[in-house]
Design a protein around this nucleic acid. Structure first.
Lengths: 205, 205
DNA sequence: GTCTATACTAGGATAGAC
DNA sequence: GTCTATCCTAGTATAGAC
């Protein structure tokens, strides 16, 4: 550990971090595209361009790899929440978050929810980094939901927890994919359409 | 083929049909519970109480088995559609169908949508029985949607196809499972809650 | 058409050299 | 920490007797 060592170590660590980021990013895309069960470690490694054994030096299991990808999307969500203008109306903040999440999904960047019985689900429930971020996101959205219900822009009769779950679910809504496959709307139109049905409902107003 | 044969043959065939129904029903539940990829043929066979090889005498592949379960739920949907009172308002017919589908999901009887990239998806797209039922259901719901938009009870600005997709998606909405896991509402309350957010939206009216 | 036993493969994970 | 080569389990599917 000489005085000149830090620079090289830091560079090496940067490379390491960059590779890990590439791996997690690839896992994230495949998770969004085909789900945890259908995603194979072989495919992740091949896409990144490294050997499978090398990948396993970074992540001890497929579950840990997928969990890292889930933590990443949660962190990106937190980053977005932090960037929402504080002066916006609560309901507009909520709309902005859901819009962003839907854009992520259309871009193939939003991993689908793990099934109740999945081994990934179990791994996430034991992952502090994931749970902490989930709680932070829920608290922040929960505050906005209550504020929006208090100012009369969101239906105050709905339990806040039901609203929260609904917003989470819309981030993974398969309707976006259906409409995209139909090819009749642009991505932007699809997002605004689903956003409108989410907040305003199907019934006439 | 003597004159006395038909009775015995018929009985045997009834047994055969009953067994196939038991297999498909089990597959249906497992499909709802854990999805196509996580469902194993071993588990289906064990649950039904037959050997795996026997199951393969009835269905040539796992995909065919799952497809039979999907055809079954589509047929049950058609049966429900046929039983909806013709004199009801179009929008009430739509509500009734979505309510029924949500009840099916909470009962663990609604298989989750196959992922875009799934081998099951490909099998379904080559399955005439599935596609025909899907088209019939879509046509019937599509007619009700247009009627509801015409009579002013459903938002006429929404593309009918988007409404149709939204209704399909609500049948598999993960929000139901989230709320059920929370344990704060009865099944009936969950259904009415999600039904209300679907048709009336999250925003205050 | 049901069973037991087995073939075959995909895919998660590891060994060991560099 | 990267590679090639290999292990090993789980799971789909089939053979062959009854």
């Amino acid at each position: 550990m000489s005085a000149t060592a830090p620079a090289k170590t830091s560079f090496k660590e940067q490379m390491l971090q960059a590779r890990e980021e590439a791996i997690v990013q690839t896992a994230n895309r495949l998770l969004a595209e085909k789900g945890f069960e259908s995603m194979t470690v072989d495919e992740v490694a091949a896409t990144v361009g490294i050997a499978k054994a090398s990948l396993y030096k970074h992540f001890p299991s497929k579950e840990d790899l997928a969990a890292a990808a889930m933590v990443r999307i949660m962190q990106r969500t937190l980053d977005f929440l932090a960037a929402v203008p504080a002066e916006d109306k609560p309901v507009d903040k909520l709309r902005a978050v859901v819009r962003w999440a839907m854009q992520m999904q259309l871009a193939g960047e939003m991993p689908s929810l793990p099934h109740q019985n999945s081994s990934l689900r179990a791994a996430l429930m034991n992952n502090r980094g994931y749970l902490d971020r989930l709680v932070t996101i829920s608290d922040q959205l929960g505050g906005w939901i209550q504020a929006a219900q208090a100012d009369g822009s969101l239906n105050p009769k709905l339990p806040a927890i039901a609203v929260l779950y609904t917003l989470f679910a819309r981030a993974c809504d398969p309707v976006l994919g259906f409409l995209k496959a139909g090819g009749l709307q642009t991505d932007e139109q699809i997002v605004e359409l689903v956003l409108a049905t989410c907040f305003d409902g199907l019934a006439a107003r």
